[in-house]
């Protein structure tokens, strides 16, 4: 990997200032960025670590909302976000234990890998992405493969999840990488049902609106029996065809509904 200057600020303001340098890149747990840098697919000249900023860590639950600091690790969410059990279950199955001890929720969302788990939770829950500059609704945040609404140098500082009445995440793991070959996060609130699919879409996480409409009328796995997920825009690769993933979209959604 190419060398870089490393800085580890202790406040959000200092991190924002450090990221104004040319070719500066934010580093959180590094579980995706470091392998990417080893392959020289990324070669920042300055790395700004976000893991020394106390105000970006921790989990606060109140008034039906769980707010998680962006630099909180997956293991910490799995252990500490008990007010939102579907989210703790998701966090406890990301990667493997060593990855969960370093990787963070903010890093995962900012990276927006099309097979990552957290984007499905954020989109289905109608979460709010809090940055150093503004608040972004999850519906507006995810904008395609590895693409988000974040501006250059903008940092996710926290994520707010309204806790649904019922929710669950089901994923079919790619057995070597443990990324979701397809994952479905289902969240039921008084306003209706939201279904977010990860791992399947060519543009990353997306909502399966046909299933949402059906489940809003009758929240049961059986109501999806007659429904088929559209194959258009689904990923086809050596792991599975679009038709295979379309079937997984339905099966994972049904499993999530059954578990919710």
């Amino acid at each position: 990997m190419h060398n870089f200057e490393f800085v580890k600020p202790s406040s959000i303001a200092d991190a924002v200032a450090a990221l104004r340098q040319e070719d500066a890149q934010a580093l959180s747990g590094g579980q995706t960025l470091m392998p990417t840098m080893k392959q020289r697919l990324a070669a920042p000249s300055v790395l700004v670590s976000l893991t020394g900023i106390a105000e970006m860590k921790g989990i606060r639950a109140s008034g039906g909302v769980v707010e998680i600091g962006a630099a909180t690790t997956h293991a910490e969410v799995a252990a500490g976000a008990g007010a939102y059990p579907a989210l703790t279950a998701l966090a406890g199955n990301i990667g493997d234990p060593a990855v969960r001890n370093r990787g963070t929720i903010g890093g995962s969302l900012a990276n927006n890998d099309p097979a990552a788990d957290y984007p499905a939770a954020a989109l289905a829950s109608g979460a709010t992405i809090v940055t150093n500059a503004r608040e972004i609704a999850a519906d507006d945040f995810f904008q395609g493969l590895f693409t988000t609404a974040l501006e250059e140098g903008e940092i996710i500082t926290a994520v707010r999840f309204p806790v649904p009445e019922r929710a669950a995440y089901a994923k079919f793991q790619q057995p070597a990488s443990r990324f979701a070959l397809t994952g479905a996060f289902v969240a039921k609130t008084s306003a209706g049902v939201r279904v977010a699919i990860t791992g399947a879409g060519e543009d990353g996480v997306f909502r399966w609106t046909d299933a949402e409409a059906a489940l809003s009328g009758n929240f049961s796995a059986a109501v999806l029996n007659g429904l088929a997920a559209p194959e258009d825009g689904l990923i086809g690769d050596l792991h599975g065809t679009p038709a295979y993933r379309a079937n997984l979209v339905k099966v994972m959604t049904q499993r999530a509904v059954a578990a919710a």
Partner: peptide
């Protein structure tokens, strides 16, 4: 050296971590 295999796992502050996927300078 791609954070898949786990041969490099050590404990950092008591937690299992893949040492090939952590910068030494970040762990001062």
């Amino acid at each position: 050296d791609t954070s898949q295999c786990g041969a490099c796992v050590v404990h950092v502050d008591g937690k299992a971590v893949k040492s090939c996927t952590a910068f030494a300078v970040d762990l001062d």
